[in-house]
Design a protein around this nucleic acid. Sequence first.
DNA 1: CTGTTAGCGCATTCAG
DNA 2: CTGAATGCGCTAACAG
Lengths: 332, 332
Amino acid sequence: MKYTIKDVARLADVSVATASMALNNKDGVNENTRQKVLSVAKKLNYLPNRNAQNLITQSSNSIGLVVTDITNPFFGMLVNEISNIVIEAGYNLQLGVSNDIIEREAQSVNNFIQNRVAGVIVVPSIQDKYDLKHLFDLQSNGIPFAFATTYYPGINADCVMCDLKKGSYLITKKLIDSGHKKIYLLAGNRQAVFSLQRINGYRQAFEESGIDFSEDWIIETLPYFESGYEATNKILKERPEAITTINDVLAMGVLKCLKDNHIRVPQDISVAGYDDLIYTSILETPLTTIRQPIEEIAKKVVHVLFEKIEGKSSDYCTYYIDPILKIRETTK
Amino acid sequence: MKYTIKDVARLADVSVATASMALNNKDGVNENTRQKVLSVAKKLNYLPNRNAQNLITQSSNSIGLVVTDITNPFFGMLVNEISNIVIEAGYNLQLGVSNDIIEREAQSVNNFIQNRVAGVIVVPSIQDKYDLKHLFDLQSNGIPFAFATTYYPGINADCVMCDLKKGSYLITKKLIDSGHKKIYLLAGNRQAVFSLQRINGYRQAFEESGIDFSEDWIIETLPYFESGYEATNKILKERPEAITTINDVLAMGVLKCLKDNHIRVPQDISVAGYDDLIYTSILETPLTTIRQPIEEIAKKVVHVLFEKIEGKSSDYCTYYIDPILKIRETTK
DNA sequence: CTGTTAGCGCATTCAG
DNA sequence: CTGAATGCGCTAACAG
């Protein structure tokens, strides 16, 4: 049976109002009656109906989170961290998976709005054309939100992300210093902030070194394993000296392709990834990569969101977390 | 601004009741007035409050899902599939991550109960002692639930899972047929159904072949990368001829340890995993494994749950999906 | 076809 | 300290 507060009030022989006050630890209720209420609540296994609570208190115990690709362990870890923190704080997590399709992101966000969640965290997807109405809808509904790992430009919201430009700069510089010139970048979608920033870091390294580079070396890709494989297949005939990617999953696709073509890493080609997934450490040659400090990103983004929810802060900021270069064996 | 149905009613110059009927496409409302209501709703960007809707209709648009380890791509894929199906059906997904801690599972389920979700899917965690009160609470609150990938014994609920015994049987038989005798099994927790079934398959293969085996070859582990590494480290001095595991992530830990100890696979030791993660295909030597058909499991478990939600079915069943043996190069 | 009334489960006034 | 009354936003009778 589902019990309501009426049931516990009736069985505790008090009114609904006092039952409510007792249950919520409000003062102004006699200790004896409180105990009586609590004990019947326990006996009945009574759990308050959040829909009713949220409705009357005009608040919510849920946080909405949209990620692009839950299949990628990087986002798996992000969800894990965010989930832990959010639950710890007494909230519930509603999850949307966009698969990098903006319409799905919008659908999830609309769900969140209808459910009147307390706040939303979104990992933006790759899109050429942005229809960001759902984000403005969040704003007009007074629901705070923050971006994680990257952001959509032109939106007034907090963002917590890795300093992607710096990461790409570090890795590209490393490759240049090792004597490579023809360094390809599997870059994702040029329109996207997370690609642009990495491209800028890549460019900066070249410019600082005074080595010429070609725009043709910047390859647009999707961020998946297969995309890394296909892109590599296409550029192989250009004889790249090194290939960097915007994430480890792409880099694994690169390695797979090179393997299938009997090209040795790093003897024939150097390869570098981005993210530092644990699973890359057992590769034939462990992957040189950039670590994005996920725990920090998760902690910070939730913190920032909570401040907005609690009304402690009202100005928006993009927080950059320092990346860490992990030199392993896929680079000379 | 947040608008309520009152606002759209007022601006459309109708009563709240007709506004509601128009919005919900009920018939018995003039086409003109319906259009009028719809247009102001659109103009206002009105989205109904689900808390109120759920409260009055005594229903819900949310499905709760608890997984153990979202960091493992296997569960990432499972969440992805379930999310897609559930969203497609017009539901919202609430996610809990237990990290194999039963108290966290319970907390998530309690959240789901309080939110009065329509149904719950749970991936049971590894535990010696089960306090399954939260599941009985689901039942007493009339919330249908189903298990995915494994189940807790003694609970009246549906389960959709891979035929784990068969999978382990197939792989063990394969190893025996290749001439191995001393085959270790990194088995997870013996108390858990998902371990037991695999152990049974392992046993069956030995018994059929008439080869003696030792109980000592069955090693209890946690299901994580590090656990695979550590377990391997411990059994190395016993000179195993082959190591099978209950998931690919564990197997990757095994491979990493063997690599660090300069032990060749499969020349010195054969290794086999379970799950068929895409990332294992680029390993030094691609991993022999058992594929669990995740899409099928996801589809079926959601289907089964929906039938319970809609009251179309009332008896419980465990559905076993056939595993697929993937022989690659880590086995002789 | 439309508006009035009632109530989902709960928290918060305000009298007593 | 306690209870009766009110309303959160919405849907479902029921009259008119």
